[in-house]
Nucleic acid binder design. Sequence first.
DNA 1: TAATTTGGTTTATATTATAAACTAGTTTAC
DNA 2: GTAAACTAGTTTATAATATAAACCAAATTA
Lengths: 95, 95
Amino acid sequence: MFKDLDPILHSQLRLAIMSLLISVKEAEFTFIKEKTNATAGNISVQVQKLKDANYIEVTKQFKDNYPQTICKITATGVKAFEAYVKTLQEYIKKS
Amino acid sequence: MFKDLDPILHSQLRLAIMSLLISVKEAEFTFIKEKTNATAGNISVQVQKLKDANYIEVTKQFKDNYPQTICKITATGVKAFEAYVKTLQEYIKKS
DNA sequence: TAATTTGGTTTATATTATAAACTAGTTTAC
DNA sequence: GTAAACTAGTTTATAATATAAACCAAATTA
């Protein structure tokens, strides 16, 4: 009756990050920080988890002398997000 | 940009329970157990939390010699559920 | 009357989310 | 040129959560 919700996406911050990346495709760590208002530590952890799940790709480089982390959603990530939304809608559509 | 999701509802099982109660208004513990496929212990804990939040009303009685726990959503619970769905849609609508 | 079943609750454990503390380097002000 | 403040993160410690396992009380069945 109630399908399991992907635990990787059923997290406020990870969902917000994925939601951002769905629309912009590519975003800097600092951009994610601004948009989500989360702490850098929290973002760092959640980005790592999304990367471990292969939902995003993380590139680290230097820009204007400072480290720069860029996140990009993968095809797997897009699929997972869509599936999550679909499952979620089965929970809430009954309302 | 991303409003906080009600932590009481942002739990797979509590969301499933609330979703059920939105549609049926009133349900027995055993009915919830059947529909959600969760363990009784887990349901017991989550029902307690929903009750503590005043999202549901819990009535305990006996039926055919056996204890019977009945859950019913409150007006507060309906409001919270609707707000949760609305907030959630702001997360996922960007996709 | 012993074993099993019903309908739960309590407790222990594993997972999560989060903030705080830390690292490594850069820029600015004195 | 060096101390203070800032950038861009990571790691670690802690608190909160979700969950299953163990338990309880009573009823039923063999």
